[in-house]
Design a protein around this nucleic acid. Structure first.
Length: 452
DNA sequence: TCTGCCTGCCC
DNA sequence: ATTCTGC
DNA sequence: GCAGAATGGGCAGGCAGA
């Protein structure tokens, strides 16, 4: 009520144009067209005369993650001051990201190194750990402080990193000792909490798989080569069951990459990350460049399972999709019951032309209310309903358990199955809705992966 | 007090 | 996360 | 190729309303 009163008085005092932006702010509809990089361009333009002078500012930002600090330092001390901003413990470094390719054979072509390190890729949470004596801070990929969420990792970094100060980069995962397999990502995410952290940490212990070293014993390591950083990392780690460096191989060719990839997938891992071992294989904070390339099982569609799903609903688009559909609700066919059960929404993978085409394709199936043969939970209920008619090919990474999608719905557990990372591939106009992928087939895919 | 919806942040 | 598009 | 902005599933947690 306090908030409402305050906001009401702000709206009352505002001009019509101000009101528009206040409402957009409150409803999360604000689009600035300016992210952090555009802000840095603006700083360079304003204080250094041209946005071509962004690089030193960008570097300081990449190692400090604090655009306010960069701006303040630039104003007070000029470029020299910005260049002197050091890597600082407990101030996160922007994580280096991985590039993607559409064929695995592109990896050796683009990586720019004859020797390639191939590391396991884990489906967990990216964690940057700062060790400052006994004082440990953990940061998530988007640099929020998650120290309190992982008391077990804090303790392991404290005890098993044999350096007084260090910054590590790695992945928190939930490894099940009994089955010798990694828990699904969803299980690890139960650790993202404020309360009852201790109990859940005991129930789902985290393992820290470290793959990089950015700073050690007072020295920044960003501009050392990957092989040097890795060697120093291994020297500093006193490995045990809950903290270790990422498993990897070194290879010189595509066959080596492919072999390791296959063993990773067979062991239930998400994929691989290939890393350049060249002289200039520095840690490029904040960058997504060709020194690191990832490969996951859904990238090469030949091996991946694509699903043919039926459109049963759509949601109104926002922003640049305002006025048309932003996403569609997709369902599989339950042959036994002759009904359609939802598997995912889908709004990615559409070109602007596909999107423009959507209303025309769907208009004939438009329904006033939920069609009788369509089963949907309240959380997944769409803005617009369609009778099952249009079939579409959908690509995704994997099938997961779902509290909102009704495919293979278990009324006892109130859970169905959903597709993770769904995206549009193409229309399947020649298919009838009853020829879509069945809920039984999706269930089989889920079980096959889950039970090896 | 309990439930459902919405947001924020992981991927 | 994935994907598309304007610059 | 970069930067930005569309969009996905899921979990925890806060808050409004039953």
């Amino acid at each position: 009520d306090q908030k409402i009163g305050l906001f009401a008085s702000m709206l009352g005092a505002a001009t019509p144009s101000e009101r528009r932006y206040l409402v957009r702010l409150a409803t999360g509809q604000m689009r600035l067209g300016a992210g952090d990089m555009t802000l840095l361009d603006a700083l360079a333009e304003a204080f250094l005369g041209s946005k071509t002078r962004r690089p030193p500012l960008e570097h300081a930002y990449n190692i400090s993650s604090d655009i306010g600090l960069v701006a303040r330092t630039l104003l007070e001390e000029g470029v020299a001051g910005v260049l002197a901003i050091p890597v600082t413990l407990h101030r996160p470094i922007r994580p280096m990201l991985t590039q993607r390719v559409s064929r695995i054979s592109e990896i050796p072509e683009r990586i720019g190194s004859s020797i390639i390190a191939v590391e396991e890729k884990y489906d967990g949470e990216r964690i940057q750990a700062h060790k400052d004596g006994d004082d440990v801070t953990l940061f998530s990929r988007r640099l929020t402080d998650v120290t309190h969420q992982y008391p077990d990792i804090v303790e392991h970094v404290r005890q098993r990193v044999m350096a007084d100060t260090a910054i590590l980069d790695g992945e928190a995962v939930a490894f099940d000792r009994d089955t010798e397999t990694y828990h699904p990502f969803q299980t690890l995410m139960r650790r993202r909490r404020k309360h009852r952290i201790k109990e859940v940490a005991d129930e789902i212990p985290a393992t820290y798989r470290v793959f990089d070293l950015l700073y050690v014993d007072g020295e920044p390591y960003l501009r050392r080569s990957y092989p040097d950083r890795r060697a120093r990392l291994e020297a500093a780690l006193s490995v045990d069951e809950r903290i270790s460096s990422a498993d990897r191989i070194l290879t010189g060719d595509l066959d080596g990459i492919q072999d390791f990839y296959i063993t990773c997938v067979e062991r239930g891992l998400e994929g691989i990350v290939c890393k350049s071992c060249a002289e200039d294989s520095f840690y490029r904070a904040g960058a997504r460049e060709w020194q690191w390339i990832k490969w996951k099982s859904d990238y090469g569609t030949e091996l991946a399972d694509t699903l043919d799903l039926v459109i049963v609903g759509a949601n109104a688009g926002r922003g640049k999709r305002a006025g048309t559909y932003g996403s569609v609700l997709c369902a599989a066919y339950n042959h036994d019951e002759d009904i359609f059960q939802t598997v995912c929404g889908m709004g990615s993978g559409f070109s602007d032309a596909d999107l423009a085409d959507l209303p025309r394709r769907l208009v004939g199936a438009k329904a006033d209310r939920q069609p009788a043969r369509v089963m949907v939970t309240p959380q997944a209920a769409p803005d617009f309903w369609f009778a099952p008619a249009q079939v579409v090919e959908v690509l995704g990474l994997e099938i997961t358990e779902s509290p909102v999608h009704t495919c293979n719905w278990d009324p006892e557990r109130r859970r169905g199955l959903a597709l993770r990372f769904p995206r549009f591939v193409r229309w399947r106009d020649e298919k009838n809705p009853e020829a879509a992928t069945t809920t039984a087939e999706i269930t089989a895919i889920f079980r096959r992966r889950r039970e090896g």
